[in-house]
Amino acid sequence: MSKLCTLWQREIAAYFLSPIAYLVMVSFLVLNGVGFWMLVMAFDGRTNDVSVMQIFFGSFFYWIGMLMAVPVITMRLFAEEKRLGTIETLMTAPVSDVVVVWSKFLGAATFFALLWLPTLSYSWLLNQFAAAPTPIDWGPVVMAYIGTMLVGFFYVSLGLMASSLTQNQIIAAIIGFVLIAIMFFLGFMINIGPAWLQSFFGYIGSIDHVRDFSRGQLDLRRVILYISATVFVLFCTQKIVESRKWR
């Protein structure tokens, strides 16, 4: 447990010691900021029963941010260690592979969560500068964040798995992006193919999930789906990391 903590700290420190992290943070902030600003402009002076925050979660800019940021966050996790050879010093320390995989996941997930921190101010900003301040319904906002984290952490696990497959960070980012994009686009395929396939796509595609979360619906089945999918992908990652032993 203390080793998990040690490794987790080192992962987070590694982010803040690399310029890529700052680049991701700034880009993410700009992207979401522009998206938010455009939404505010679009709703200016009009009344609408859908709050701006609900539109924000699930908007184009929201998804672009998710889809681009996660692979860039996760690409270095294993690929860099392999390229540098530090995988050897890491794996010959008395720690198990499970701990290494989970610490890397937790490190990246923490960084992902930190990316969203500035957006917490949006709801507050809205209220401050709105012409007619209305009390914010916090329920859906909190749900939206929980949903974003669930989906985001699942994507992080996919990115981590991609990183464990190669020693080239660019390749890791591309594989990660493709895996994540597949998960995202499945949500659009609910009109294709036989009925069982449609419902399957609808069940696992991310796009509807975030929309529903942001409406304040916390479907327990979906929470469990995301948690178990994340754990499953991390398990696969562990097997890939162990595969050096039988290759």
């Binding site: 080192r10 420190a13 590694a14 010691l17 690399s18 540098l84 050879g85 530090t86 995988i87 050897e88 010093t89 010959t92």
Partner: peptide, 10 residues
């Protein structure tokens, strides 16, 4: 290990 891999940014 061979080539002495280290975390260069630390």
């Amino acid at each position: 290990p061979e080539n002495n891999p280290l975390y260069l940014e630390m």
